[in-house]
């Protein structure tokens, strides 16, 4: 008992620092009672109108580019230049989308599948590796754990683009530049994910439960796979989503690594189309149509994801 409290006191400082990162991850959710909810006076109604007006104006700011591309995707290149960008003109959406999906033997679909492959596979494996590492660092005290953790923490601060260039030189010498592996392998590791998993494992996996599982004869790997992963699920959802978005949105790494158009993710592919509009104006239709198609799943994902961010991150309570 006293050992615990002593250790708690010692780790509380570290924990306090870590809560910063846990803000997005493992904060305990107690419903914030709405402020001034009971007052329905004149002034509160006025503040309600003002606040909602500000929120609406900013809502327009955040949604205008999306609205613009919805409109733009319905236009021919000629209409794009001759009509007002915020107003619909002749409906040409079906033709544009047909062009997007059939151009160059349907390469758009291939780019899309590539993105799903890079982001999906990368994020699943990265989450598993981060969970295993985070669990090990949180639940075992072993020699060298601090050095290992410190090094990984340093990795959080290293800009991804700073390692991309030497990584390309390294992968070239290994002969795996310009292959699927060149984008996939760097996506498998998430120092920030491990950091979150460690905080979460520390808070949500009970030592006494582990101890009793050991007494029941469970191996350490089994304990991690059954008890650990289950207790860490909310954190794993977060890490997975972080990594999924990170890989999907990455541009620098595939740009450096890939020369073969068939391996491009969607970001690189659309940029490729975009860069050709000056020579061939019909690429405007391809670009606007392609952008529209590519952001629809992202917008749906963000709206769903946003709930997870709220629920998943905060449900699995941290014990104080």
């Amino acid at each position: 008992m006293s050992i615990r409290s002593e250790e708690k006191a010692r780790t509380s400082q570290i924990e306090r620092d870590e809560t910063a990162a846990a803000a997005g991850a493992a904060a305990k959710m107690r419903r914030p009672s709405k402020l001034d909810g009971s007052k329905t006076t004149e002034s509160s109604r006025r503040s309600r109108i003002i606040v909602t007006a500000i929120l609406a104006v900013l809502g327009i700011y955040f949604l205008v580019p999306v609205y613009y591309v919805v409109v733009a995707a319905t236009k021919t290149t000629a209409d794009l230049f001759s009509t007002n960008g915020f107003l619909f003109a002749n409906m040409n959406l079906i033709e544009n989308l047909q062009l997007v999906f059939t151009f160059n033997g349907g390469i758009f679909i291939r780019w899309f599948m590539n993105s799903i492959l890079y982001a999906g596979v990368g994020a699943v494996i990265a989450t598993y590796l981060a969970a295993a590492g985070g669990f090990a660092l949180a639940k075992y005290s072993f020699r060298g754990s601090n050095i290992v953790f410190g090094t990984i923490l340093g990795g959080v601060l290293v800009p991804g683009t700073a390692t991309a260039l030497p990584l390309f030189l390294l992968f070239s010498s290994m002969g795996i530049a310009n292959t699927y592996w060149a984008v996939l392998i760097p996506s498998l590791v998430s120092p920030f994910g491990l950091f979150l998993c460690r905080i979460y494992a520390k808070a949500s996996v009970d030592d006494s439960v582990i101890e009793s599982a050991r007494l029941d004869g469970a191996s350490e790997m089994r304990i991690f796979h059954t008890l650990g992963l289950r207790a860490m699920t909310p954190a794993l959802v977060t890490v997975f989503l972080f990594q999924l978005v990170g890989i999907w949105n990455n541009f620098f790494l595939p740009l450096i690594m890939l020369a073969d158009e068939n391996l491009y993710p969607i970001t690189l592919g659309l940029n490729n189309w975009r860069s050709q509009v000056d020579r061939l104006p019909e690429f405007y239709q391809l670009t606007t149509g392609g952008v529209l198609v590519s952001i629809i799943p992202l917008i749906v994902a963000m709206i769903v994801l946003q709930k997870f961010w709220r629920g998943g991150l905060t449900d699995g309570a941290v014990k104080g």
Binding site: L58, I295, L298, M302
Partner: peptide, 15 residues
Amino acid sequence: FRAAYFVPYGVPGVI
């Protein structure tokens, strides 16, 4: 509003 503000995060920087 929260969903509307969060949508751009899903749009890759290039796009």
